[in-house]
Every structure is written in structure tokens, then in C-alpha cells.
Computed example of a mutant assay.
Amino acid sequence: MSSSLRRGTLAAAVIAFSFASLAACAAGSDAQTLEVKPDNAATSVGDIKVQNALVITQPDVKATGPAVVSATLFNNGTTAQTLDSINVEGEGTAQITPVGGKGKLTVPAGGSVVIGGKGNASAALSSPSQTVLNGSVQKVTFAFSETGDVSLSAYVVPAESYFSKWGPSDIPAAPTSSPATAPSASITGSPSAPASGQPSNSASANPSASASQ
């Protein structure tokens, strides 16, 4: 196992417990389940708090499918804000898709939004390069309509074990080997026809006919 993969596995193990708080984050940033400080990326700017930020790659390092940004966004203000973009340094802007697939992603006043995982909004990097390396740290910038840019450094982890439920939904299937072509039932040159040179039933050199003469 390469050193980068070992770092990715270690990072995933360290932050898995704190990342489990995503399941209860809809209760708000003051919920009892969120009192444990996360080991992974979190920061606050103004009314906006970004927590549990990760870049999650394909489980197979050789796969060419998308990577995703996963995070929980809290808005402690009295006005709703839209998330206008997510930029991963060196990779460009992620494609943000809200629940339902239309419009902008809105973080309600006094509420929260989860990015990543089944039934939640998503943010995908369609063609991540080699800079998005498991075990590394990437600068991720969330741009909000009122607060502006909120940047932090996020771990890059593969969509394995606990993180499989938050990772890319588009994961290439494992290649399958094609079975060998079965031989045809009818073989050319079938011996069903009489072989050439086989004596016929009425041979001219019949010994019984010669004896009767």
C-alpha cells in the first residue's frame, strides 16, 4: 500500500466518529450530538458555519469517475442564503445540485443543509486530477450570497467503509471478463454424408454373381 493510501486510511479512521454527527445535523449547530468538536475541517465566518468538510474520491484509485465535496452548512442568521459555488483549489468549481435537482442550494435562516449522501444535495467534481490524492488536504472555498467566501482545508478520503454512503453516486462497475465463444453445434465437414470411395451395395465385382455363371 502506498504512503498516500495509508494516510487516507488513517485520516478516514480518525474522522469517522465525528462525521457521524451528520445524521443529526438537521437539529441545528447547537444540537447535543454536535457538542463533540469534529476532527475534520470546520470553520465559521459571520452567520455561516461549515462543518465536516471532506473531498471524497472513488474507492478504486484507478477509477476515472467523479469525486464529491461533502459538508454540513449552518446559517445562524435571520436571512436565508444561497450557496453560489464550491471551489476546490487546483480543480475548479464543483457542480452543485440541490435536492430536487433545480434552482440554487439555499441554506435557510436558523437552519442547515447537508451536502453529500443519499437524499441530500450534492457537489461533484466531474474529472478530478491527480492533485486530489487520498490522504492529502485540499483548500475548499464555499461562496455564499451574503457572507461571501468561506474557505477551509479539507481531507481527501476514498469512498470506503463509513464514507461509502457520502461518496460519489456514480461509481464505475468492476470490469467483467467475457466468456469464451461456445463452439457451434454444426461442425463443417460432418461425417453424415457417405465418405468418398465407399463401396456401394450393388458392386459389379459381386463374387456370388461370378460363381453362378
Rank of each mutant, 00 (worst) to 15 (best):
L34T: 04
A41C: 02
I187M: 12
A31C: 03
V132E: 14
T181L: 11
A121E: 10
S184E: 14
A173T: 06
A41M: 01
F19M: 11
P172A: 09
A180W: 13
S200A: 14
I115K: 01
Q58N: 10
K62L: 13
D60K: 06
K118Y: 11
A173S: 14
N87D: 14
I48R: 04
N52S: 14
T82V: 13
L125M: 08
N87W: 04
K165Q: 15
A123D: 10
S210T: 12
A67R: 06
D60G: 04
L125Y: 05
N52V: 02
A124D: 09
N206R: 04
S184N: 11
C25T: 07
V107T: 01
Q32P: 15
A123I: 15
F163A: 05
V69G: 13
A124Y: 00
I187V: 15
A12G: 12
V156P: 02
N206T: 11
A26Y: 14
S186E: 15
N76H: 08
G189T: 05
P179I: 03
L152V: 01
S145I: 10
S190C: 10
T147P: 03
A182N: 05
A12S: 06
V55E: 06
S122Y: 06
P98D: 05
S136R: 10
S151W: 04
Q51V: 08
I15R: 06
S4L: 08
V55R: 03
G90H: 03
N134P: 12
S85C: 02
S196T: 14
V99W: 09
Y162K: 04
T131E: 05
V14Q: 09
D170F: 00
E35V: 15
R6L: 11
S18H: 04
L10I: 08
P98F: 02
N52I: 06
Q213H: 14
C25I: 11
P158N: 13
Q58D: 13
V150G: 07
R7N: 15
A203E: 12
L54S: 08
T93V: 09
D39W: 15
K118L: 09
G116T: 02
A24N: 15
T93L: 05
E35L: 15
P175D: 00
A109K: 04
S190H: 10
S210R: 14
P108K: 02
D60R: 06
G167S: 03
F142S: 07
A205S: 10
P172I: 09
P98Y: 11
S200T: 12
P199Y: 02
G90Y: 05
T131Y: 04
L152D: 02
S112H: 01
E35K: 12
K49P: 03
A94P: 05
A109P: 07
P179E: 00
K37P: 10
P207I: 02
S145N: 06
Y155W: 10
E146W: 09
S153L: 11
E91K: 02
N75K: 01
R7D: 13
V36Y: 03
E160L: 14
Q81L: 08
Y155D: 08
S70N: 00
A154N: 05
I15T: 15
S112W: 01
A71M: 05
A174Q: 09
L73G: 01
G92D: 05
S18W: 01
F19Q: 10
C25M: 09
I96D: 06
K104D: 08
D47G: 06
S151G: 12
V156F: 00
A13R: 07
T79A: 14
G189F: 01
A11H: 06
A174C: 07
T82Q: 09
L34R: 07
I86E: 07
D84R: 00
T43D: 03
L34F: 01
